[in-house]
Amino acid sequence: MHNNGISSLYELKDIKHKYGSHFCLDIPHLKIRRGSFTGLTGPNGSGKSTLMRILSFLEKPDSGSIYYKGILQYKGDTQAGNNTAMLIQEPYLLKRTVFENVAYGLKVRGIRENLNDTVCESLELVGLEPDKFGSRKWFELSGGEVKRVALASRLILKPEVLVLDEPLSNIDPMSISIIKEAIVNVSRRHGITLIISSHDPVWLNLICGDILRMYDGTIVGDGTENILTGPWFEDIDGLWSKELAGGEKIFAVKPPDKNSIAVLNPSEIIISLKRQKDISAQNMLKGRITNMVSLEKRDALKIDVEVQDMTFRCSLTQHAAGELNLIPGKKVWLIFKASSLQWQ
């Protein structure tokens, strides 16, 4: 027995797991609090889905240890997988009716009380009319409807952990708000720990307390950081640089490897309305504000600035943003030191 305190539901240590043909998930340490909402972002192939399957106990990592509620998993029969439910990116429906699909999880748990009402309620949550859809067969649904039925069959279980891999992809725009609301409401109401990946960063930022940004199988930041990938080339003054598509250069100190990944904390970036002269910072990039998000819990704004083919995420207090009169579409200068880029 290993106790890591009540607050952390998951604790992962030295997880290594091969996925795809040549990728390797490498997570030295990760804690996920009970009842928290954790978002996963990162490009395709960065290991989000693999990490999610490991957290759902659908895949055993090649090495490393997972503590769930302080109990080491995959050791003997201590399996807590029963209380996690995962929605995979392209869900599979059982070859039964919609009703039977949603009811399946409860049936295998031996719960038959109020089955009819519970299933109907669950279908309504994802915006499907029970009368119209309940008796439909698995092949009589559109791609988006399949996803919603699959989501309903997970929500109905009210598991301890709900793992949703891209729950909004492939869903028609009309239903997206219904689905978003259903996910958040059910999770909040039942104290479900939510682990979710999405290509909608604004929504993730809005609902998730923690965001994990993944790149090449590792967690490279909390999602607010800027990730700069190589290749890097030696430049003037002993600095190294990377060129953006439009020819702008980003300077950094000597990287450990030509293809190293650099992380730039948003708070290290200064936003200026004019080009600054006589300044020691080596990086000065001209960009355009594309997005501004206010965070519920913090007095901070997240500001996305597009510089050629790259988007930088900056953070500013509401007050400072007000003084600079920042609005989306405005042209600004981003200033940061070469040494602000931290090598991973």
Binding site: R53, S56, L58, G81, N82, T84, A85, M86, I88, E90, P91, Y92, L94, Y104, G105, V108, R109, S153, R154, L157
Partner: peptide, 13 residues
């Protein structure tokens, strides 16, 4: 291949 994942995640044993 997704059937196995689906059955397990829905709680079948």
């Amino acid at each position: 291949r997704r059937l196995r994942l689906t059955l397990i995640t829905l709680g079948a044993r």
